[in-house]
Amino acid sequence: MTGDDQELMAAAAGGDVAAFDALVRRHTTKLYRVALRIVGDPADAEDVVQEAWVSAWRSMAGFRGEAAPTTWLYRVVTNAALAHLRRRRPTVPLEPEGKVESALADRSPTPEQAALSREKVDAVLRAIALLEPSQRVPLVLRELEGMSYEEVASVLEVSVAALRSRLHRARVALLAKLEELR
């Protein structure tokens, strides 16, 4: 979050269309990344991002600054992603496809990435997609987005203690899924 975000949110909430567009330009990549990691499919993730911004636009006037702008946007996209998962037909599997991996661009790989096989990274994405949404969402926000416990708890509107418990189960479940996929 930055001071600029606060100003943009306040302006957008007051009807400043340029401020809202600036928020869209600034945060769409982040929202898409979260959506992709939760729903596991690029086309579905785009649906979620569109829905999230429409939802943000509709509720922007009610933004009173109780939450930080980034927290509020994470909450909007997380809710949109969860709604998408609930609505998705059961014939559509949760497993991500090859395009998920291709959407994860190999730009400036870290030494750690270079040392790890592509298959291991892909396996993580498949394993995350197999987790229950109640475990997948906090895991994505904390372990992949790098948010603090307090930030994730605020996004999910749960206590930090409850979040820690959910995250612990999610981590254990993720390692178990990774073992199964080996």
């Binding site: 991002v49 990435q113 396996a123 992949l144």
Partner: peptide, 23 residues
């Protein structure tokens, strides 16, 4: 846990045209 950290460090590319479609 290393592969999980690797996924976290991997950038995600925005689909072509998504930003303009949202706007």
């Amino acid at each position: 846990w290393g592969p999980v950290r690797a996924v976290a460090a991997t950038p995600v590319e925005l689909p072509d045209g998504l930003l303009s479609r949202v706007l």
